[in-house]
């Protein structure tokens, strides 16, 4: 593939102004091709979430450029970025961020609602998405009635119900035990392999990062290492 799905050039992100200013990202160069499965690792506060927010078009870089399929995201308006999120991106948040007091089914239907799908089709698609994350028949439960792992799977179903080309997951296993974490990772692996969805995931745990094809390590807002798993097994790596 000649054009990468994601192309970051010298991306910086600064929070605040003057003496209180904080540089969360200090010049990130990153290219991710369609179909890749990338894990982003790094110590707390290293800028992982900041980077994910930019990749997910929720936030814009303070400097540098972000191209999504060749499209300069920083030049898009707020609503244009919203449309990009709606049609091309799926986001699984750190913390599930489901609508409380709203059934799993309705949570998953939400993105389809904004895409203007008719009700019957919406219901069908949401049910299929829930089934694909192994929650067949759980649709009528509200988040409060679901376990952490189930809630995270609802969040994943919501992210992939629109058939995005890029799935971003910020610590999808952060609140889960090892067993549930493995289930989620297997799910992401399947989505990546079977549906060709590009996955970018933040994780603290090396075990989980092993599922990815590629591990990017952030330290102090810079990429410290960027390793292909196959290469790593050979003992090599890129700084």
């Amino acid at each position: 593939m000649s054009e990468p799905l994601i192309s970051l050039t010298e991306v910086t992100r600064r929070f605040g102004t003057g003496a209180a200013a904080f540089q969360a990202l200090r010049g990130v160069d990153l290219r991710i091709d369609e179909g890749d499965f990338v894990a982003i690792m790094g110590p707390s506060g290293s800028g992982k979430s900041s980077l994910m927010n930019i990749l997910g078009c929720l936030d814009t870089p303070s400097g540098g450029s972000y191209r999504f399929r060749g499209l300069a995201v920083e030049s898009l308006s707020r609503d244009q970025r919203a449309l990009l999120r709606r049609h091309a991106l799926g986001f699984v948040f750190q913390g599930f961020n489901l609508l409380a007091r709203t059934s799993a089914q309705e949570n998953v239907e939400l993105p389809l609602l904004y895409r203007g799908e008719p009700a019957t089709q919406r219901r069908e698609h949401a049910r299929a998405a829930l089934a694909s994350v192994g929650l067949d028949g759980w649709g009528h439960h509200s988040p409060a009635e679901l376990s952490g792992g189930q809630q995270q799977r609802v969040a994943i179903a919501r992210a992939l119900v629109t058939g995005p080309s890029l799935l971003l997951a910020d610590e999808p296993t952060g609140n889960l035990d090892t067993e549930r974490s493995r289930e989620i990772m297997n799910l992401l692996t399947d989505l990546n392999r079977d549906k060709g969805i590009t996955v970018v995931m933040v994780t603290h745990e090396a075990d989980m990062a092993e599922y990815a094809h590629r591990v990017v390590r952030l330290v102090d807002g810079r990429i410290a290492s960027d390793v292909r798993q196959a290469e790593r097994q050979d003992g090599g790596g890129r700084a």
Binding site: G56, L58, R78, D79, A82, L83, L84, R85, R86, H87, L89, F91, F93, N97, L98, L99, A100, L110, P111, Y114, R115, R158
Partner: peptide, 16 residues
């Protein structure tokens, strides 16, 4: 606020 954040993140437009 959180609900609004979720809606916006999912791709709701300002006018929606």
């Amino acid at each position: 606020t959180r609900e609004i954040g979720i809606r916006l993140a999912i791709g709701a437009l300002e006018r929606e």
